[in-house]
Design a protein around this nucleic acid. Structure first.
Lengths: 248, 248
DNA sequence: CGTCGGCTTGATTGTGCTCAACCCGGGTGG
DNA sequence: CCACCCGGGTTGAGCACAATCAAGCCGACG
């Protein structure tokens, strides 16, 4: 009812949509078979909390479908999102049971979950998984550091533009719809969640979105559907230099 | 001349001061011997840049002595420190040649450097190193996320208190000097570097430091030497809850 | 039709930034 | 020895950007 029900059906790893990008991407068929034995799929409704900060995390796994946020909350309610996980991203940490942050399903989400203990054992025995996990963790670390620059130094407008660009880039890569100018995509986040991610209030987010519309940097199809008429124009608003600030 | 010359002399790994905390901490004696063959020590003067953002990083290694900062700079000069490395911390990233940030010696620094290619080969072959590196990277990621909360949501005063607490904690752990109340330590950072790390201006840092002195949360021995008369009092100023916000 | 949640917009406030002057201590050169 | 300078640090006045407080809009749904 809330949005289309996701058409993801459980499959064997061979036909998994994230087969070639997730933590298991370098696995041989034999290794996949072992993973297969300890995995199970679970879906979460949009808005539901997957794990609360401080609670024990019984599993480790991959995002198969949907968007997951990681966030911390201070005693007085101030909240900061500290990670946004998209399909193929990894959830949880080996050899650590208590989650240091809330894990929340932003949209309807399907996780591929591995039971913790067997997975840790497998991790210790399987170089291909461990290497891939290291690689993914280093990528996450780079992304976190990029976000630290945004949180510490960028203006509200630059923050908004940077976030929009993240989604626009992703869309641009997935779709071949790149007239190389125009991009259209759906925002997976509410204004409030955007504020959580950017270290702003939701009013400031709303105002800056309106300003970007007024100045024709973006247009709104609906509240959540964004049109970027000129990719380069949006990039100019992020404060990053031309090559995007994320050197490969 | 500037500060005491560091008395670190090259040693074999067995008597290295970071032997049991660095990336090599889980290595057997045989593995250490291999590392020994590809390592070399290098020292850097306080203030010198070890690697510039965008430049090729020819090595990978560990901080043995001193403090190293990682920071990003925007075109217009806004700067954000995104990591602070202390002895035993790891510098560089396997299978990546270009540094995405400046690496700067904050104090006089000694690095234990491994030549990149042989180290990567070793990493692929040696589970103990790979596991340890994964563990350290996950710790760095947790620290980065903690800092994201600080950058996005904390007030100037809370930021300062949090940073002071980082150093106070470290001192408190190293020294047995814990009267459990009073702690004394040297700030390794100038006001400007503190500002870079906290996402503030140096004026704001100076003002908040003065305010904390005025309210007797801290006292200054000299500009750089801090006295914390009451550890708990300082913790109260960080905005974190009692258990410190860094659940193990 | 009324309500409710997500979002927008307005008025006002306040925290931290900017610009600017000045202080302090150490090193240098006359 | 003193005068000077210079870098790091402090302090002040005014300002600007984003937060806060508050009202109202819009679309979905009961």
């Amino acid at each position: 009812m809330p949005g289309a029900v996701l058409p993801f059906a459980e499959t064997d790893c061979g036909s998994c949509p994230i087969r070639y990008r997730a933590v298991c991407s370098d696995c041989s068929n034999e290794e996949l078979a072992v993973l297969d034995a300890i995995k199970s799929y679970k879906t979460y409704k949009a808005g539901s909390t997957i794990v609360w900060a401080g609670d024990e995390m019984q599993f480790i796994g991959s995002v198969v479908v949907g968007v997951v946020s990681l966030s911390k909350t201070m005693e007085d309610g101030r909240r900061q999102m500290i990670g946004l996980l998209l399909p193929s991203d990894f959830v949880g940490r080996p050899h650590r049971s208590v989650a240091p942050y809330d894990v929340v399903a932003v949209s309807d989400v399907t996780l591929c979950r591995f039971r913790k203990v067997p997975f840790e054992k497998l991790l210790d025995e399987t170089p291909s998984i461990r290497s891939r996990l290291l690689e993914m963790t280093l990528d996450e670390l780079d992304a976190a550091r990029e976000w630290m620059l945004l949180l510490g130094r960028k203006t509200a407008r630059e923050k908004i533009a940077s976030l929009l660009l993240v989604f626009a880039r992703r869309e641009n890569h997935l779709q071949l719809s790149r007239a190389l100018g125009q991009v259209i995509f759906d925002l997976p986040l509410s204004r409030e969640k955007m504020a959580d991610y950017l270290g702003l209030t939701l009013e400031t987010v709303s105002r800056q979105m309106s300003a970007l519309v007024r100045e024709r940097v973006i247009a709104l199809h609906s509240r959540r559907r964004i049109i970027v008429p000129d990719f380069a124009r949006l990039m100019n608003e992020t404060g990053d230099d031309a090559d995007g600030g994320l050197p490969a």
